[in-house]
Every structure is written in C-alpha cells, then in structure tokens.
Simulated assay, not measured.
Amino acid sequence: MKKEYWFVIITYIAMQLSSIVGVPIFMLIGSYTGMPADELEVKSAAYWIVFSFLAALFLILFLMRKDMREKLDTRNQTSVSMSILWAIAGVFMALFAQSIAGSIEQMLGVESESENTQQLISLIYKVPMVIFVTSVIGPILEELIFRKIIFGSLHKRFNFFISALISSVIFGLAHGEFEHLLLYTAMGFTFAFLYAKTGRILVSMSAHIAMNTLVIILQVVYREDIEKMLDTAQAFIGGLL
C-alpha cells in the first residue's frame, strides 16, 4: 500500500474519534450563549460532525492529489457515457442489495431501523447542515477509503470476490452496527463492483451519494407523508380483515 494511503486512513480514523475532544470544546464555546444543556450537546455534536468531515475531506484530497487520476485497471475503464449509465444503475443496484440484505436480517430477527441513521436524522432536524455530510461528504470519504484504497489495494493481489468481500466487511464494521453487518456489506459489495466494472471511483462515488441523498430525503423531508400513507394502508387492510 502506498505511503500516502496510510496517512489517509489515519486521518479518517482520527476524524471518527475526534468527537471525544471536539464536542466538549464546542460545548464549552457554546455554553457562553446560555443555551440549554441538552440542546447544546446535540448542536455541538452536529456542528463538530460538519467541521471534522470537512477538515478530513480537504486533508485527504490534498494527500491524494497525485493519485486521483490513476485507474484501477485501464483495460476495464468504461467510457464517460457508460460510466454515467452505470452510476445511475448503481443507485438501484445498491437499493436492491440493501432491500435483500434487510429482508434477510428481518428473518433473522434483527430490527430494521438503523441506530446510526436515526441519530443522524435527529441531528439533521437540529442542524440541517448535517444533511450535506451524510449525503455528500460521507460517501466521498467512504468511497476513497474503502473502495479506492482498501479494495483497490486488495484487488492488486486477489480476485474481485475476495477483495470486495474483505473491503465490504471492513466497511460494515466501520459503521459500528454489527447487527447490520450484512446490510453494509451488501452495499459495499455493490459499490466495489461498480468501481471494478468501470475503473472510475467517481462512478461508485456518484451512486453512493445519490443513494444516501434519496434515503435522507425520504427519511427527513417526506417522513410524515410516508408514515401517513403507511397508517392509511394499515387501517384499510385492517378494515378488510
């Protein structure tokens, strides 16, 4: 693995752990505003997420500035038009993989709701700026780390399946929700396929961004409408029964 890749991984890990120090600092600064303690804690966490992700993104892009033009495998690199089509198709592939994995988890007795997702949604309601992190910055960082660096490095030594499986499991473990490991692994596998198929990290990155954005829109913007539709449907079915 290239030396700068290790610096990138260290930066990413440091960003994930930085809230231990960053949030208390933001709370100390915010305490002078007279904000209630519970609201101060939530907003400090939200603003630190935005700050730390932006800082990590700029630093990682700087570290990888000479590397971004390199291709995974020039023989497999697709044209721009085909890459756009794969990016669009990748959104539906990721959603399909997510739904299949989610169904399997439910059959195993795992609750469908993700704790991470619910926490992020609660932060978005408090600080809407967080939506940019979850929809754009997060996917960019994850594709650079887990697909370009980890999967790309493994794929130079192993076949696609082994490389995609290992990198996707690491991707799942990094989210800290072991009960949803299958779900994250399935999505990681899909994004690894898109990267390997096209040879362009922008393809898996675009699909990841689009999928996260769609999920956040449905969860935040149209959540009440969806809940009303589900309640209406349940009442209708209950009336028939």
Score class of each variant (00 low, 15 high):
Y5A: 06
W6T: 02
I9D: 03
M15P: 00
M15L: 12
S19C: 03
V23P: 08
F26H: 01
I29A: 14
G30S: 06
Y32D: 07
T33S: 15
M35S: 05
A37L: 09
V42N: 14
W48I: 06
I49A: 15
V50A: 13
F51T: 09
S52P: 00
F53D: 04
A56M: 07
L59A: 15
L59T: 15
M64T: 11
D73A: 08
N76T: 08
N76G: 07
Q77G: 03
T78C: 10
V80W: 14
S81D: 10
I84P: 04
G90C: 10
F92L: 15
S99L: 06
A101K: 06
G102C: 09
G102K: 04
G109E: 02
S112W: 00
S112Y: 00
S114Y: 01
E115K: 13
T117W: 03
Q118K: 12
Q118I: 07
L120S: 13
S122N: 15
K126V: 10
K126P: 00
V130K: 05
I131N: 03
T134K: 01
S135C: 15
S135V: 08
I140E: 05
F146Y: 10
K148N: 10
F151Y: 14
A164W: 00
L165K: 06
S167D: 06
G176F: 07
E179S: 14
H180A: 07
L183I: 01
M187P: 02
M187T: 07
F189M: 13
F189D: 07
F191R: 02
Y195W: 02
A196Q: 10
I201E: 00
V203A: 06
A207H: 01
I209F: 08
V215F: 13
I216W: 07
K228V: 08
K228C: 03
A235Q: 14
G238I: 06
